[in-house]
Simulated scan of single mutants.
Amino acid sequence: MNKQVIVYTTNDCIECTMVKQVLTQEGIPFEVRDISVNCAYQKEVEKFGFLGVPVTVVGNHAVKGFTNELKELIEIAKGI
């Protein structure tokens, strides 16, 4: 596994917590970027075409929310 995983989040976001839990359960290390702490992170989210969180990024792939697309992103992160 050589792809960096980034999760854009806020502290009070339930879906964000769920995404982080799944990544942890899958054994995937990730960096948390809280958009409420650093406005530059919100701009990064917007560059991926999203306004809200959670946004999970692996390489040049980005997924918003806690959806089936997240499973595909996990497979990419694992190198499957």
Rank of each mutant, 00 (worst) to 15 (best):
K3R: 13
K3N: 07
K3D: 11
Q4K: 15
V5M: 08
I6A: 06
I6P: 05
Y8D: 05
Y8C: 00
D12V: 11
C13V: 06
I14Q: 10
E15I: 01
C16D: 05
T17V: 15
M18P: 06
K20S: 02
K20W: 02
K20N: 06
V22Y: 08
T24Y: 06
T24S: 12
E26I: 03
E26S: 12
P29C: 05
F30V: 05
F30H: 06
E31G: 00
E31V: 12
V32C: 13
V32S: 15
V32Y: 08
D34F: 04
D34L: 03
I35L: 01
I35F: 01
I35P: 02
S36F: 06
V37A: 14
N38Q: 13
A40C: 13
A40Y: 12
K43V: 02
E44C: 03
E44T: 09
E44Q: 10
E44D: 12
V45I: 00
V45W: 08
E46P: 08
G49D: 07
G49M: 05
L51Q: 14
L51R: 14
G52D: 10
G52Y: 02
P54F: 02
T56C: 00
V57H: 04
V58I: 08
G59S: 08
N60A: 12
N60T: 13
A62L: 07
V63S: 03
V63Q: 06
G65C: 09
F66H: 09
T67Y: 02
L70F: 09
K71A: 15
K71G: 14
L73S: 01
I74S: 10
I74E: 04
E75K: 14
A77D: 08
